[in-house]
Design a protein around this nucleic acid. Structure first.
Lengths: 198, 198
DNA sequence: GAAATGTTTGACAAAAATGTCAAATAAATT
DNA sequence: AATTTATTTGACATTTTTGTCAAACATTTC
């Protein structure tokens, strides 16, 4: 039981499928039937393992939070230089968003439906540490002077928006999948140049 | 009939309420009952005026597109200098997003559910015109050199992301409503400084 | 002010989605 | 191999949401 393959563990399969439907495909109001179909299992197994649809959704939401959180933690507690931290984080982020492009949008829609974010305390501690580093870089003249919070907003905006909003941006800007992928690949350099003073 | 007040025109009231529920409150899977309640009308009036829930949603989606479109057109066909165009657009955008912060996210979730964007042709024409202006500014040395498309991505990202993702960002960054509002107010200057070379 | 038209309402029907259960099957334990 | 336990299934019940309709009401038109 403990050595059971994760691939065939139905509970795990359902959860991963739900994540795929939400975070990868962005179908935020998929029904339990649709998720069950996508997982290739009987719908009532969702009730067996998760009791209710709501419960499954809450668990998936928590998972999403942890994922965001871990990514954040990784960048802050590495002992790279500031610039390298940013650079590294861009790599991990773009890697992760290939799998789950709609993770952040999902969280927003959930929060707008009354679901709320947990573990603010710890996150704040991480951020305060980061703000200090940002301030140091400003003193050194490596980045423009502004409130560190604004730098963080710039950073996450430049990084996330083109991914999260891809359907809208790709369509309005007249790209096809291939050319938009290319655009995204080029973004790392663009972002580094935008954030740091040459 | 033609001179009827728009405030009491039920059809109009329902549509505006739906927009409020979706774009202002971000409750993307509100039921027809919830929308009717929010509008203070009988639910079946939605069927009377819009035939089906789906039809209402499509109409609202179209409205959203037109709104985005008009905003885009405004900036491009003004005869201000490039920098003033950007500046002006930031003002209009922030003004608009006070009313409809979740308009863009709504469009993305709709598109992920199979709804698709219309009128690409015209939008492309607008963008091409804008790309040319961007290129000129780069030549002049007012903005960093990059593909004009990347400049547009930077621009919209810096502008939209902190608004669209507000629930997530505000929570994770530990702001309250008031302090986040303040942060947003400061953003115009930050964005101008980030986009333009001093 | 009577007839015609447009609007609103509640009762009901239909559809869609979720949840429950007992029986069937499979797996583990003795 | 028999028994216990865990998993899976389909049939059914419940709940939620949407759509229809005729009657009530209001407004306009003649």
């Amino acid at each position: 039981m403990s050595a059971k393959s994760l691939d065939t563990d139905t509970e795990h399969l359902i959860k991963e499928t739900a994540k795929r439907v939400f975070f990868t495909e962005g179908r935020f109001n998929a029904t339990t039937q649709e998720i069950a179909d996508a997982a290739g299992v009987n719908r009532t197994l969702i009730n067996y393992y998760f009791r209710s649809r709501n419960n499954l959704f809450e668990i998936v939401f928590q998972d999403a939070q942890i994922q965001e959180h871990d990514l954040m933690e990784k960048i802050i507690f590495s002992n790279l230089s500031f610039k390298e931290k940013i650079s590294q984080h861009l790599d991990t982020f773009f890697e992760q968003t290939k799998k789950y492009p709609y993770l952040e949008i999902y969280m927003v829609t959930q929060m707008n439906q009354g679901n709320c974010y947990k573990d603010k305390e710890h996150m704040n501690m991480l951020l305060d540490k980061f703000y200090l580093e940002v301030a140091v870089e400003m003193e050194k003249g490596n980045i423009d002077k502004m409130r560190p919070e604004q730098f963080v907003l710039n950073f996450v905006s430049l990084m996330s928006f083109p991914v999260s909003m891809r359907p809208l941006l790709q369509e309005t800007m007249g790209f096809n999948n291939e050319s938009y992928d290319k655009l995204l690949e080029e973004r790392k350099d663009v972002i580094m140049n935008t954030l740091f003073i040459k």
